[in-house]
């Protein structure tokens, strides 16, 4: 176990928590040597819609880390103050959820405070405002990055526990664990990988839609190749989501079995 985590740590060190934005051609380059024709075909299709990719470290936190960066970068670029106010209200709702579930406040308050600080800093016009460059720097700084990842883990766990009846059948489909065990062993510890249950819960809790584009070897029976995606749309009526109209996710993640990166549409 310890050796396994040592190897993982060593491999992970080669990539920063959050990489630089790279043209999508760098994705194709990865599969040039002996890559499956299905994958190369799919990357070609992707390149019609997407311009760039930003890689994240494969340390088990990649979904949360990708979400963190993509969300904060979106706010930084859009300066959407209404979105910030909306998400802040949902964060306070998450805080109340954890309180009601009996989590001692002092075990999670620092993580909430640090996220709200990051959220504040990407809106311009205050003394604490930061640039895109600084956002990248902070996302690579463990003392900021891991705290924000942990904040999302708290939010995700709280949402799953709050709506345990809804999540239970999906959790049973993944493992034989109870909701409680699942949260304790697969959500709350750092480095535990995320599945559709985590994504659904986080998207619902914060009211932020997320698009996940799947890049795998699957193809249709007739041999034609297309790239699937799934939009995680926050349930209407839960928290302050933007209403029930069809939402266009501003966060797009690329999923390859076992890993998430950030995609940038053209």
């Amino acid at each position: 176990m310890q050796q396994q985590s040592a190897i993982q740590a060593e491999e992970a060190e080669k990539i920063p928590f959050v990489g630089d934005k790279e043209p999508l051609s760098s994705l194709a380059a990865e599969y040039k040597a002996g890559g499956s024709p299905v994958l190369l075909e799919k990357i070609k299709i992707l390149s019609e819609q997407y311009a760039a990719i930003r890689r994240t470290r494969g340390d088990g936190n990649c979904f949360f880390r990708s979400f963190m960066f993509a969300y904060l970068e979106h706010i930084l670029e859009s300066q959407d103050r209404a979105e910030v106010d909306r998400v802040r209200a949902n964060v306070e709702e998450c805080r109340r959820t954890l309180q009601k579930l009996g989590y001692p406040e002092f075990t999670f308050e620092d993580f909430f405070a640090l996220f709200l600080e990051q959220l504040e800093s990407v809106i311009q016009g205050s003394e604490a405002s930061i640039s895109d460059e600084e956002l990248v720097k902070r996302s690579r700084d463990q003392s900021v990055s891991d705290y924000v990842v942990m904040f999302f883990r708290f939010v995700t766990s709280g949402e799953i526990r709050k709506r345990s009846e809804f999540f239970e059948p999906f959790i049973l489909g993944l493992t034989s664990a109870s909701v409680e065990q699942f949260c304790k062993s697969a959500v709350e510890p750092m480095g535990e990988e995320s599945d559709h249950v985590h994504i659904t819960a986080l998207s619902d809790a914060l009211g932020v839609p997320i698009r996940v584009v799947y890049l795998d070897r699957s193809s249709c029976d007739n041999g034609s190749v297309s790239v699937n995606h799934h939009d995680f749309t926050p349930v209407a009526g839960n928290n302050n989501s933007g209403g029930s109209e069809a939402v266009n996710p501003f966060i797009t993640l690329l999923y390859r079995p076992g890993h998430y990166d950030i995609l940038y549409p053209k």
Partner: peptide
């Protein structure tokens, strides 16, 4: 003990 190793989380004090 798992919570002192790979199952650690800051929820534990």
């Amino acid at each position: 003990l798992d919570i002192l190793q790979n199952q650690w989380s800051p929820i534990y004090d």
